[in-house]
């Protein structure tokens, strides 16, 4: 197990490093001259040259890459052109909000999925089954920007219960989290429902029944733990989709998280910030997948045995 963790972690580090280098090189080669973009329209050639010196873009690209990587390792991702603040500081402000949003959305989606999906699998013809089907269909067919806009009009503009956007506290999380949760729920619900149905037919469920365990215990402990494994895979695959949904939600709700920051950074051609965000999000992506792989091993003793 220990060797497995070490090997997977090393892989993750190499992936992040490769992404960092690629992002740097691609931005430097494909994008315009940052100094030309940031310097005012009326700036003289000397002023533009001064910008180049400030940005360090007057140096050979290999040297720039070296400086960048050396800084990145020490936690210094440079200074944002657009915000004139250290990139790490900007990300440190935005990231917790995005993680809170993604976390709330995932938690919300998972809670509904687990409760509703389990009940729907246990009693397919009950109201729970119908509700699960409706939620899955609605979530599947309605994109985040649409549900988001609808919720804003209803709950923020007409009813005035919640803020329509921005970040003013926990209440600002509610609408975007619900919108994102709705978009990621259908897949989860479908996967859990069908894996739950399969698991409920398993012999060990019969055993648990034969020993007088309650239906609740059987469903939410004996069956769920087994049914969660396919769901876990889906969540791993869905992290990208989740992040995408979060970005859309951040734009729709003007929520100042990493997604909006990334969009601003891109539109402002703020390369240090684009680089920083890409590296941080890529790292998160890699870490989440790593954690899921390890969680897999943790939940399933059979995998744990194979790996050791």
């Amino acid at each position: 197990m220990k060797r497995y963790v070490i090997r997977r972690t090393a892989q993750a580090v190499i992936i992040v490093l490769a992404i960092a280098i690629t992002v740097f090189v691609v931005l430097r080669l494909s994008a315009g001259d940052p100094a030309r973009i940031r310097a005012p329209v009326f700036a003289s050639a000397e002023v533009v040259e001064q910008y180049r010196r400030d940005f360090g873009t007057d140096r050979p690209i290999v040297e720039q890459l070296g400086t960048f990587l050396l800084g990145a390792v020490q936690g210094d991702l440079g200074t944002s052109f657009r915000f004139h603040q250290p990139v790490t500081e900007l990300i440190r402000t935005a990231l917790p909000r995005t993680l809170a949003l993604a976390g709330c959305a995932l938690a919300l989606s998972l809670s509904v999925t687990i409760i509703l999906g389990s009940l729907a699998a246990l009693r397919p013809r009950s109201i729970w089954g119908a509700l699960a089907t409706i939620l899955a269909t609605v979530g599947q067919s309605a994109p985040v920007f649409w549900t988001g806009a609808l919720m804003v009009i209803l709950f923020a503009v007409n009813l005035g219960w919640l803020p329509p956007g921005g970040f003013t506290g926990v209440s600002s999380l509610v609408l975007p989290a619900v919108a994102v949760a709705l978009s990621i729920m259908p897949t989860q619900l479908r996967v859990l429902r069908s894996s739950m149905r399969g698991v409920l037919r398993e012999e060990y469920i019969r055993t648990a029944q034969a020993f007088g365990l309650s239906d609740r215990r059987i469903t939410f402990v004996y069956a769920l733990k087994n049914a969660l494994l396919p769901l876990l895979t889906v969540i791993g695959v869905d992290v990208g989709y989740l992040l995408g949904g979060v970005i859309v939600a951040e734009v729709v709700f003007a929520f100042p998280g990493v997604g909006e920051l990334a969009l601003v950074a891109l539109n402002a051609r703020d390369y240090p910030l684009v680089q920083g965000i890409t590296i941080v999000t890529a790292s998160i992506f890699v870490i989440v997948n790593l954690v899921i792989d390890l969680a897999y091993a943790l939940i399933d003793p059979r995998i744990r045995m194979e790996q050791s």
């Binding site: 009009i153 329509p164 709700f253 003007a254 909006e260 969009l263």
Partner: peptide, 18 residues
């Protein structure tokens, strides 16, 4: 002076009193 890039978000912020 608050910057709200998205046009929908902007008008919604006004309508909801933000």
């Amino acid at each position: 002076f608050r910057y709200i890039e998205d046009a929908q978000a902007r008008i919604n912020a006004l309508l909801s009193g933000q």
